[in-house]
Every structure is written in structure tokens, then in C-alpha cells.
Design a protein around this nucleic acid. Structure first.
Lengths: 214, 214
DNA sequence: GCGCTAACTGTATAAAATAACAGCCAATCA
DNA sequence: TGATTGGCTGTTATTTTATACAGTTAGCGC
């Protein structure tokens, strides 16, 4: 019994791909809220109706009343095949307001083993600018990012503040969170998390630079 | 890196086994309530305290405030063996006087596609020290090296001077060759090539950093 | 234009799940 | 003997998550 994905809409295919990716990266299915965050939906019902549609077409099954009750028919995919032949997705231009992992943003795939990094890398992000220069992160570098929503002080994170995505050093003191650049030419960003939302998109777990020095 | 299960109690091992089993069978970690049902506990706190104990011993990690937030450390089942034959050799301690690519020095192999870099990488070299800090090369980084014996000014090279191997920026003026650090705390090395032999071992074509900052 | 569907926003609420607090009992160890 | 630890019961507050209901907008076929 195979799934016929030809009758899935483009968007539904993206949602399905995200579910696979979440299973791969997190080891468990996403919640409705996590789907919303990934795609930038503002209503949980957007995710809900997509999941219903996928379930109606047999692409997934939904367990009623259970947290993370999304299941893939034919069992849980082997943790290896999905990324193995394809490598890590390189996320390109992260346009403001857009979900970081939307398929449209996958610029290419790089033949890098996610297990090269620990915790494992979920995707690559191309750095623009020199705001983390003194941390050895230069313009054009690829950052290996592990998807997570929590961070500890001193870790370098991908953070989203009001539809703006940046890479900075994380530093929290109570409800105040500072995003520190590693370059005196740039100013820290401080956010009161009870006033402005701050979302951690991921944790830098590695770096890849390719090319000769300019 | 394996988890030392010898310091887990019998009951804790049973709980851990159940978590593995749930992940295998359901494709997601169990909730406290599901642990209770599986073991016949009448209080969710029974499961909670077992999970806390397992987390304290490093057998699992717990994500705070997340449904089914149990994770197995190290991401998931390791499969670093896959790329073993295909990856790039990582050259360890480059003993003075020895050819850099002697088999004895191959510390390990890293699952990296040589074609990720251009020109293609032939091996990886682990950087020691901070003499190239301002070029974004930090202590512990892996440099992707393309074997060549020639270099142009401004390129970062692996050079051997009198049985000493270093990574520096190449700069030639006539018969004088300077190896320039990218850190004001270090001094350039200048060599008169008609007096002292200087050998270029290779050209830096990329960089890989894995691990969290600090 | 009309009905239909996909793809959402926005609001609300109940159920599921986490996580804290206060205990009890038996075994082990100093 | 007292202190500590593992392994639980019982209760409850709070957060997370699922899911229902009521809309909006845009495109597509007729």
C-alpha cells in the first residue's frame, strides 16, 4: 500500500514534508502549534485543516485527543534514509515574516552528514553580514543549525524577533533576553519577552565555509 | 559515546526500555500517563520522578513544558559508520619531519563530500591555536585542504618550514616569502627561499567547525 | 455571477500533559 | 538510630495541545 501523493496540493506536500522532517529532527511528530510556527500561520486552525486534509487523503492518520497524535501510515520512517542521500537543506534568503523552513527557501542540499554535528544538524543557514565576526563567523559561511526552541546563555542561536531573523549569542536574565553580536560595530538587541515575542529557531552546532579567502 | 547504563537501577532500566519501545512502536516518546499505564502506576508522579532520575543520570533529556518532551541524548541512533569509507581523512598531530599524509596520522574519517569544496578537498586538518583568529579560523576548527605545491598571495596555505607545519596567509615578494598570521598577537614568519626551504603542502579551501561555542 | 475548494485568520474551550507539593514505606548505609 | 535513597500514592495548578465554530480571500469551473 503506497501513498498517492499526486493528489496532494503543493501546500499539503509541504506540510507532509515538514512532518517527516520534524520526525527526523525531533524524534516525534509536531503539534499544530509547531506546524504554525514553521509555516508562519497565525491560526492553529490553519494547521488543523491541513492535517485533516492530509488524513482524509490517507497521507497521515490522526489519533483523536492525543498530543502529537500524527502518525505516518506504514510505520515510522527509518532514521537515516531521508537525509542520507540528499544531505542537509540549505536555507537561503530568510525573508522577514516567512517561516524559516518553508520549502520555497530551500536553496539547495549539501551532502553533509547531519551526524557530523552534535546535537545533530537539521539544516544549514547562510550567514549575511559580519555581526558575529569575532566568533569566527564570516559573511557567506554556512551555519549548521539544530532545531530547538530553548537555549542557554552563551550559545549561538537563530532567533526571530518580530519577523526578523538573526544569528546572535543568547543571553537571558529573567524575562529580559539579549542577543549579543560578536563585533563591536554592532549593538546588542534586548527584548522583554513579556512584551515582545522572541522565538528561538535553532542552535548553531557547527559551521562550514567553502571557498578561498576573497 | 554510549550511555553507561550500569548505574541505572533495575526499575530505571525498565522505564528506559519502555521509552525506546514506545519510540519504536508509536514513533514518538510516551507521556507520563502512558508510562503509568504501562507499569500500573497510580500516580503520574511515579513516572515523573523516574524520568527525572533518568535525566539526572544522563540517560534521557527532558524538554521543559513540552508534551512528549522526552529525548534520547545524542539525537538518535548513531550511524556514523555509513560515510566511513567515503569521507575525508582527518589528519591529526602532524609530527615534524613526517609527510603530512602518512596513514599513521589519519585520526579518523569525516563524512564530508570532498566536492563540497572547490577546488576539491583532499584531507582535513585540525587547527591548533588562534594565530588565524581574525580570518575566522578558531582553535579546534577543521580545515579542508586541497593538495597543491603552489600558492598565490593572499591565499591561506598549509606550509612547511624546517619541519614545522603551520597554517598562514601566503605572501611572496620575489625570493622572500612571508607567512602572515591573522592575529596581532603573532608575528609573521619570513623565509628567504634560497636559503631555507619552504614547502607548500596545500591550500585551504574550506572550514568545518563542529560543536557549541566555548 | 454562483457555487465550490484551498488556504487561511481569529476566538474559544475542553482535554491532555507537565510539573509542583506533600506525603508513605522499605531498604540501605553511616 | 537517624539520614538518605528508591519507589511509589494522592492532589492540584498551569501550560500545552487538540479541536470546534465562525469568518475572509482568492482562484477555478460553469
Amino acid at each position: 500500500m503506497t501513498i498517492d501523493t499526486t493528489d496532494l496540493t503543493r501546500r499539503q506536500q509541504e506540510i507532509l514534508a515538514f512532518i517527516h522532517q520534524a520526525l527526523e529532527a525531533e524524534g516525534r511528530p509536531p503539534t499544530r502549534a509547531e506546524v504554525c510556527r514553521a509555516f508562519g500561520f497565525k491560526s492553529p486552525n490553519a494547521a488543523e485543516s491541513h492535517l485533516r486534509a492530509l488524513a482524509a487523503k490517507g497521507a497521515i492518520t490522526l489519533e483523536e485527543g492525543r498530543a502529537r497524535g500524527i502518525r505516518l501510515p506504514g510505520g515510522f520512517p527509518r532514521r537515516s534514509d531521508t537525509f542520507h542521500d540528499t544531505g542537509l537543506p540549505l536555507i537561503g534568503h530568510v525573508a522577514a515574516g516567512n517561516p524559516i523552513l518553508a520549502i520555497e527557501h530551500v536553496e539547495s542540499r549539501h551532502p553533509v552528514d547531519p551526524a557530523l554535528f552534535s546535537p545533530r544538524a537539521d539544516y544549514l543557514l547562510r550567514v549575511k553580514g559580519l555581526s558575529m565576526r569575532d566568533a569566527g563567523i564570516l559573511d557567506g559561511d554556512l551555519l549548521a543549525i539544530h532545531r530547538t526552541e530553548t537555549a542557554r546563555n552563551g550559545q549561538i542561536v537563530v532567533a526571530r524577533v518580530r519577523d526578523d531573523v538573526t544569528v546572535k549569542t543568547f543571553s537571558a536574565r529573567g524575562r529580559l533576553v539579549s542577543l549579543l553580536p560578536a563585533n563591536p560595530d554592532f549593538d546588542p538587541i534586548t527584548v522583554d519577552t513579556e512584551i515582545e515575542p522572541l522565538a528561538i529557531e535553532g542552535l548553531m552546532v557547527g559551521l562550514i565555509r567553502n571557498g578561498l579567502p576573497n
